[in-house]
């Protein structure tokens, strides 16, 4: 019974709270710029509005143009359900579920880029080419981060890997994962979610042709993915497993909020990088994770 309640609670958190994160980021950006900014719940209104709209589809597109976003959303949701939520725990994990977690994100990428290629638009081709290319580096960084968590905890199960702290390498790991978060969620300095110059975008360029409910699904999926990386980062760094349940809940919420505000601050204070420099930054993130791994390694041996 409790497990069912827990399941529903986790599902509700992922489905209902995720769209708040972009709202927080926008508030932070507005606050730094001295504007009032859109209300926190703007994305909720947008989703509700889009959900009721009709769909315009390119004459070139196949049904996969609409199926793609649906499958990508499901993949992100299933991946999120494998993540423990502090004291609420996660799905009953299994030995090696962390690999499924990483590859589910790859499934989402496959489906989004596929849907983008459907339209035959050069802009969306550009967007998907960038998405899949930068993902090569961020996947390497993510795999290294996961390996370092594995070495630290001696386990290959997400629940156990995230329960302990990242040890002495926590700062490096946090820096690496934060950069991966920025890249995977198409935030500044990799991409600018506010820009309207199609030539310079990644994620937005891929969804130019989507409208109505499919666009709502894409936006909601993107917010879930942002929250997923924020939660992953928070749990990788904090030893939530060793805290009191109430304490852990607050710590998790605080950490996710801190990450979100951090994204907002980065976005306010930093300009978008030239595309040529983006791979260098991701390589730096990868190196952060490698050093975190080496520290975990030495700690384990000692």
């Amino acid at each position: 019974m409790t497990s069912i309640l827990e399941f529903i609670l986790r599902l509700a958190v992922w489905l209902l709270l995720a769209p708040a994160l972009p709202g927080i980021i926008n508030k932070v950006k507005a606050w730094v710029a001295g504007r009032q900014g859109p209300p926190m719940g703007q994305l909720y209104y947008d989703l509700a509005r889009l959900w009721k709209k009709s769909v315009v589809m390119s004459t070139l597109a196949s049904p996969a143009f609409i199926i793609g976003p649906a499958v990508a959303w499901i993949a992100v949701l299933v991946a999120a359900m494998f993540l423990p939520l502090g004291p609420v725990g996660g799905a009953p994990g299994f030995h090696g579920d962390v690999l499924l977690f990483i590859y589910l994100l790859a499934v989402a990428r496959f489906c989004t880029t596929w849907a983008a290629m459907e339209t035959g638009s050069a802009f969306e081709g550009m967007g998907s080419a960038r998405e899949v290319s930068y993902a090569v580096l961020s996947e390497a960084a993510l795999m290294t981060a996961v390996l370092s968590l594995g070495v630290q905890s001696g386990s290959v199960t997400l629940n156990e890997m995230l329960a302990t702290s990242a040890g002495a390498g926590a700062v490096l790991l946090a820096a690496g994962l934060f950069t991966v978060l920025l890249a995977e969620n198409s935030r500044v300095p990799f991409d600018d979610p506010n820009t309207h110059l199609e030539l310079t975008m990644i994620h937005e360029a891929m969804v130019l042709d989507h409208s109505g409910p499919p666009l709502a699904v894409i936006l909601h999926g993107a917010s879930m993915k942002l929250m997923l990386f924020a939660v992953l980062l928070a749990e990788a760094v904090l030893p939530l497993g060793n805290m009191q349940p109430l304490m852990a809940t607050f710590a998790l919420i605080g950490a996710v909020l801190a990450v979100t505000i951090g994204v907002g601050l980065v976005e306010s204070l930093l300009a978008r990088f030239a595309f040529r420099r983006a791979p260098l930054l991701l390589t730096t993130a990868f190196l952060f994770c490698v050093f975190a791994l080496l520290i975990a390694w030495k700690g384990g041996a000692a």
Partner: peptide, 24 residues
């Protein structure tokens, strides 16, 4: 889940009206 999600979204899109137009 993926099949169910795809079917739901496809049905919903068709219910709200699905227009074809040139690529934007």
């Amino acid at each position: 889940l993926a099949i169910a999600g795809a079917v739901v979204l496809w049905k919903l899109a068709n219910k709200h009206g699905l227009r074809r137009s040139g690529t934007w």
